[in-house]
Each structure stands twice: as structure tokens, then as C-alpha cells.
Computed example of a mutant assay.
Amino acid sequence: MKTRSEQKKLMSGRTRSLAQDASVEQQSVMTILQTRMVIFSSAWSSGHDSREVERSMEWYMAIVNAVSFLIMGLDKQKARKGKWRIAERTIWLFALAGGAIGAAIGMYGFHHKTRHRLFRYGLLLLAIFDMLIYVILYQ
């Protein structure tokens, strides 16, 4: 049995670890958002004529949305089997990276996380935003 001071040390280490994880997560989100903005701005500043930028953007969006869709399906399968799950932050990171459409389709297609208001409304709004950006960039 651990003494009270050993337990405090253990807890303070966990707290620091959680704070470090949160910091890394914030940095990851910021990096993803910055990358996404660079991709969108390069597509926008190219004057809509650069077929190479458009093609790259289409491939990027297709891959990110396919992965997001598959993540939702895999998480649903793991939930049914009672196995280790995919973290919600991972799903959100892929959605923020441009995969919100695939994640939303996966959410409703697999009936996964539809009871979570944040997913039900937030993911749907993010998917609509992605579609609007795509339409604006590629009219």
C-alpha cells in the first residue's frame, strides 16, 4: 500500500501528464487548422485557374473524408465488440482537417455518436462549412 505522499506524487504526475497531453492536442489542432488555411488560401489565391492546385485539393479532401468515414465505422465496430475505442479528439482532428463530410456521413450511416449533441450538431455544421468552402473555391 502506498503512503499518502506517494499517492500525491503519483497524482501530480498524472495531472502534469494530462496537461502535457492537452498542450500537445492544442498544438495538433492549431497545426491542422494552419495547414488547412494554407491549402485553402493557396487554392483561392491561385485565381481558380490552377488545375494542379484543384486536383491536389480534391485528392486531399477525398482522402481525409474517406479516412474520417472509416474511423467512424471502425469506432462503431469496436464499440459493439466492447474493445478499445478511438478517442473522440481523433475524430474531431480529422473533421477539422477537412474530413467533416466523411465523418458526418459515417456518423449517420453507421448510427454512431448520433446521441451526442456535439457530434450531431457540431459535425454537421462543420460539414456544411466544408461544403460551402468547396463550392466557393471551385465555382
Rank of each mutant, 00 (worst) to 15 (best):
L33V: 08
Y134E: 02
S50I: 09
M30H: 01
I133Q: 08
I128V: 15
V135K: 05
I136R: 14
K8L: 15
K2Q: 12
S45G: 04
A104C: 13
V29T: 06
E6D: 03
G73T: 01
A97I: 03
H112Y: 10
A127Q: 07
L93P: 00
K78A: 07
L123I: 08
R51L: 15
D130L: 03
K9M: 09
I91R: 09
R14V: 13
A22S: 12
F40C: 10
T31I: 08
I105Y: 02
A66N: 02
K78Q: 10
G13Y: 13
E25S: 14
A95F: 00
I71D: 01
E6N: 05
E6V: 01
R51G: 11
M1H: 09
L118Y: 12
V64Q: 09
S17F: 14
K83C: 05
K2G: 02
W84E: 05
H111T: 14
D130K: 07
V135I: 14
R85N: 00
L125C: 13
S45A: 13
F129R: 07
S45M: 12
M61S: 13
F40P: 00
T35V: 04
R51V: 12
V38Y: 06
G13T: 11
Q77K: 15
V135D: 07
M131N: 03
K113W: 00
A95T: 01
D21R: 10
L33E: 00
L137T: 02
R36F: 10
H116F: 03
S68P: 00
T31N: 04
S68L: 00
I133E: 09
L124K: 06
I63G: 00
G122F: 05
Y138D: 01
M107P: 00
G106L: 08
G102N: 01
L123T: 04
I71V: 12
I71G: 01
L10R: 06
V29S: 05
S5I: 12
S56Y: 15
N65V: 01
R89L: 00
V135E: 09
Q34V: 15
F129G: 11
D75N: 09
S41H: 04
A127E: 06
V29L: 09
H111Y: 09
G13F: 05
F40G: 02
K76C: 05
V64W: 03
H112A: 01
A103T: 01
S46N: 01
L10S: 11
L137G: 08
E88P: 06
L137V: 07
V53E: 10
H48P: 00
M131E: 07
L74D: 13
S56L: 15
R85Y: 08
S17W: 11
I32K: 10
F40M: 11
A104M: 15
I86M: 12
V67F: 11
T35Y: 02
A79H: 03
R55S: 15
T3F: 06
A97H: 03
S50C: 15
K76V: 06
S68W: 04
S17I: 08
S56W: 14
S68G: 09
W44I: 02
A103L: 07
K9A: 13
R55E: 13
R36E: 07
F110C: 03
E6K: 04
E88V: 10
G13C: 04
R16F: 10
K78C: 04
G82N: 11
L33C: 09
